[in-house]
Each structure stands twice: as structure tokens, then as C-alpha cells.
Design a protein around this nucleic acid. Structure first.
Length: 534
DNA sequence: ATAGGGTTAG
């Protein structure tokens, strides 16, 4: 404002470029209303000024303001530039405002900016953020001479929407197109690797980063830590974590989550304590990781303290995930009463289905069937259309030997046409991912895999393996149940992995969508390990 | 005479 006053006094108050610069700075400093005033008071407020303001606002994370400036351009019937469209598209992307974004898109095409590479790239981001990936892809494909930023937008678009495999495909296409990647490419690609468990590619990217002597920013460093942590190479993650010259809350949280995820609860807590002493301030995501680690490692007191400090010291408001971890933590430790008391006393509103699902898991684990049935019925009342709750209820009945009740639940499910969706497992071999569903038959080597699995099952049975039949999905028919047990997706993936790497003692990594299978899975790893090393 | 699009953790 002082600078503005000086400008006016010096007789430059009417100089548009200077006012533009000033207003842009005002927005960048967070004083959007002042910029509005400046723009409104200037007699010759032009297209350049307003689109600069729109851009600055979009950049500053003020999407509403950006759209307001875009609106003023429209209202004043001023000429549009591509700048106005990139800013408006980014603002809509940040708001996930698909309808408004589509209007901006249409408007840009109408005014002849349909093949402006900047506008096209901004629109790819817009549609990705709104979950419209086919549209984003179509726009991306239409860009002539795609810049590295366009490629990055597409990779990250897939990755952010949980389509890591597609993201990796785009990364490979980018290599074929001989576009030189930059650090944002690697950040997005490493995230995709973390998501897909694509360790080979992750390592390849790491090698490139190192050999190119690329500057490892917090972003890139966190992406590396995250990739190794999620792929299970916790000590590799820690190496990078220690080596980074800058670490922020994301870096720390990734590392803590990595420990927790792979059964190093104590390490997770140790690092969390270090973070509180000399690291950045933990946020809500950090506490998700910490509480999950406590639940996993049975660190009840640590978890209770963390939950307490989360609210009291850091002023964070717990979400469903935090509540779930707490219930899970008490539950796993066998403290079912504490879990119920926590649900009653510490959750402000009506607990969501996730919380009851965690509670139900605890009841199952500790064979408290009466409480389990009670909880399952609450769940069904809460979400009558969700088939998995009924599956859980039928499991509880089966575990307590009430087979007539199992029948009843199953009949209701059949009558209501409720079907549980099937999970899958992924294994990466030689840079290619292979997806298996339960009873999968579409893989090229299906015959060999099944034959190999038969042999494996035979041999581990000899070694004393007995399948855990009581927790099988009870909505399945009798023969399907057998298939589910013998050919569930993880088994297929493991068999394939072992088959393709026979003779090697390198670990096999499988990613799976089914949490309930993880227990089963851990045991399986042990058995296959024993088998391979016998 | 003034300005662009992409980047990490659950």
C-alpha cells in the first residue's frame, strides 16, 4: 500500500504495468481484496491486469478469487488471453469444480485457444483432478509436441486417481518419445511405483536420479522414502531419509508409516519421538501413521498418549481413521471393553461404519461372538446395502457354530442381490505387473501356474500346512469355497512369483487389496520361505 | 512493460 501511495504521488498511478505488478504482488502476499480494489479503481483496467490477477490468485491457492477475476474479464467484455484460461482451469481443478471447468474449457475452445499447449495442459489437470481420466487422456493425446509438464500432468493424473499402472505406462511412453524427464516426473512416477509396488522401476528411477546427479529436493526425497517404505525396503527408505538435507512433515510421516506398515512399531514410535524433539510439527496424517503403528505393535500406552497429545498439544481434530486405529489398537490387544468404552466416550458423534468394522475385527480375533453379532447388526443397520457387513456377520455366526444363522444371512443376501466384490493381488516381475483375482484363469501361463500351485500346496501340506477353513467367505457356494481357499489371489501371485524365479532366493513381493487376507498372507510367506530354503 | 501448465505422506 505504501508502494502504491508512492506511485500515485510520483505521478505513475496511472501506469498500467506498474499497477499490474503491484496488484499481482498484493495477491501473492495474500491481499486479494486489496488487489480487487486496485483493479476496480484503475480507469483503464485491462485484460492483462485481470488475467495476471487470476493467475496470481490461482497460484496462491485462492481458486475462488481466481474465478472472480475471470468473471470480471467476462463481465467487462475484455479480450481473453490463454493466461486467463490456464488460471481459471487451475482454479477449477483445485476446487474439483467440473461443471465450471467444462464451461471454461468450452469458452477457451470458442475463443480459439483449443490448441494452446498451456491451456490444454491445464485442462488435462482439470479433468484428472475431477476424476475424468478418459477425458484428460483424450486431451493429452491431442496435444501436439507435448512438453515435459504435459507428460507429468498425465502421469500424476493417473497416479492420483489410483491408476498407478497407467501412470507407469505413460512414464514408459514418455521415455519412448524421448522427452527428458525432470524432478516432477520422477516424483509422480515414484509415487506410482509406491502405489503399485513396482520396485524394479522405482530402483531404475533412483539410479537415474543418482547418475544424473539430480538435486534431491524435499519432494523428490520424500517420494524416494515413500517408494522404498511402501515397497517394504524400510532400511533403504531410512538411508534416503538420513541422507536428505531437508525433511518436512511428509518425509517424516512417510518414514514413520513405512515402519508401521511393515511391523516395526517400535521404530515408528522412536522416530515419532525424534520428530517431536527435533522435527517438523506432526499433522493429522502423521497421527494416522503413528496410531496405526501402535495398533500393529500392541503399543497401547504409546497410542493412548499419542491420541491424547494429538488433540491437546497439537489441536488436531481426530477423524474416522484415527478412531479406527484406536479401536483396532485396543481390540488387537484384547482390550475389548476399553475399545467399546473408547467408542462410547471418545467419539463425539455417531461412530461411522469404519469404527464398527474395526470393533468387529477385534471381536472376531478374540472370539467374543455375542458382542460381535451385536456390532455386526449395528453395522448392517448403518449400511444395509453394503454386502461386506453381512459377510462379516455370517462369518461370526459360522465361527460360533450357528450354521442356521449363516444360512439366514446368506439367503437375505441372495434375495437382495448383494454381492461382495472380489479383491486382487499384483506381482511385479521383470518390470511387468501381473494381476490375479481369486480363481483367475486369464493369465497366459494359467496352466503352468495352477500346476505349480498344486505342487506347492502338496509340498507344504507335507510340511504341516493346514488351511484355516473357518474364516472363509461364507457367501460362497461349497465348491467355490474350496477354490477360494486353494486359489485365492495372493496364492496365485505367489505361485507365479516362485515359479518364475525358481532357484533364486530373492524375496517376492505381492500387493493385495484384501486386508482380511493379510494374516493368512503372513503365514504364507513364512511357509514359502521355509519351502524355498529347505 | 507486465504473466503461463505439473510435484510427496493415510
Amino acid at each position: 500500500m505504501e508502494a502504491h501511495a508512492r506511485l500515485v504521488v510520483a505521478g505513475h498511478g496511472g501506469s498500467l504495468p506498474l499497477v499490474t505488478k503491484l496488484a499481482t504482488l498484493a495477491v501473492a502476499a495474500g491481499a486479494a481484496p486489496y488487489a480487487h480494489l486496485l483493479a476496480a479503481s484503475h480507469p483503464a483496467c485491462d485484460s492483462f491486469l485481470l488475467s495476471s490477477l487470476a493467475r496470481a490468485a490461482a497460484h496462491r491457492g485462492l481458486p475462488g478469487e481466481a474465478i472472480a477475476f475471470y468473471g470480471r474479464l467476462l463481465a467487462a467484455a475484455l479480450p481473453f488471453s490463454s493466461f486467463a484460461f490456464t488460471a481459471a482451469a487451475k482454479a477449477c481443478a483445485d476446487l474439483s469444480a467440473l461443471r465450471t471447468g467444462m464451461a471454461v474449457h468450452a469458452h477457451s475452445v470458442l475463443l480459439g485457444f483449443g490448441s494452446d499447449r498451456f491451456v490444454q495442459t491445464a485442462l488435462v489437470v482439470l479433468y484428472s483432478k475431477c476424476g475424468q481420466l478418459p477425458v484428460a487422456r483424450k486431451l493429452f493425446d491431442a496435444i501436439r509436441d507435448r512438453s515435459v509438464v504435459a507428460w507429468n500432468a498425465m502421469i500424476s493424473g493417473y497416479e492420483q486417481n489410483g491408476l498407478a499402472e497407467r501412470a507407469i505406462e505413460v512414464y514408459r511412453e514418455m521415455q519412448v518419445a524421448q522427452v527428458v524427464p525432470d524432478s516432477a516426473t520422477f516424483v509422480a512416477t515414484l509415487s506410482a511405483c509406491a502405489q503399485a509396488g513396482a520396485l524394479d522401476l522405482g530402483r531404475e528411477v533412483e539410479r537415474r536420479i543418482v547418475s544424473d546427479q539430480m538435486d534431491v529436493s524435499v519432494f523428490l526425497g520424500s517420494a524416494l522414502v515413500n517408494m522404498y517404505a511402501r515397497c517394504g525396503l524400510v532400511s533403504k527408505a531410512r538411508d534416503w531419509f538420513d541422507r536428505l538435507q531437508e525433511r518436512n512433515v511428509v518425509t517424516w510421516t512417510s518414514m514413520i508409516a513405512g515402519y508401521g506398515m511393515h511391523g516395526h512399531g517400535r521404530e515408528a514410535i522412536k522416530l515419532f519421538h525424534l520428530m517431536r524433539r527435533e522435527g517438523p510439527t506432526p499433522n493429522d496424517v502423521t497421527f494416522v501413521a503413528v496410531l496405526a503403528a501402535c495398533a500393529h505393535a500392541g503399543l497401547v500406552n504409546e497410542g493412548r498418549n499419542a491420541f491424547d497429545s494429538m488433540k491437546r498439544v497439537y489441536g488436531l481434530v481426530p477423524r474416522a481413521e484415527h478412531y479406527c486405529s484406536m479401536v483396532d489398537m485396543y481390540g488387537r490387544a484384547g482390550l475389548l471393553d476399553d475399545a467399546m468404552q473408547f467408542i462410547r466416550d471418545s467419539i463425539p458423534e455417531e461412530p461411522g461404519p469404519e469404527v464398527w468394522t474395526a470393533m468387529l475385527g477385534a471381536c472376531k480375533m478374540h472370539k467374543n461372538f455375542n458382542l460381535g453379532v451385536e456390532v455386526a447388526e449395528r453395522l448392517i443397520a448403518l449400511e444395509p446395502e453394503n454386502p461386506s457387513h453381512r459377510v462379516l456377520l455370517s462369518n461370526i455366526y459360522a465361527l460360533s457354530g450357528k450354521m442356521n444363522h449363516v444360512e439366514k444371512v446368506r439367503n437375505v443376501m441372495i434375495k437382495r442381490r448383494l454381492k461382495k466384490q472380489i479383491g486382487y493381488s499384483l506381482i511385479e516381475l521383470g518390470g511387468t505387473s501381473h494381476l490375479f483375482r481369486m480363481g483367475e484363469k486369464s493369465h497366459q501361463q494359467t496352466r503352468e501356474i495352477y500346476r505349480y500351485l498344486e505342487e506347492l500346496i502338496h509340498r507344504i501340506s507335507d510340511a504341516g500346512y493346514v488351511p484355516e477353513t473357518d474364516s472363509v467367505l461364507h457367501e460362497l457356494e461349497e465348491e467355490e469355497r474350496e477354490v477360494a481357499l486353494r486359489y485365492h489371489s495372493e496364492k496365485l501371485a505367489v505361485a507365479y512369483g516362485l515359479m518364475m524365479s525358481s532357484g533364486s532366493t530373492a524375496p517376492i513381493r505381492v500387493q493385495t487389496t484384501l486386508n482380511s487376507m493379510q494374516k493368512l498372507w503372513k503365514r504364507y510367506i513364512l511357509i514359502t520361505y521355509l519351502y524355498v530354503h529347505e
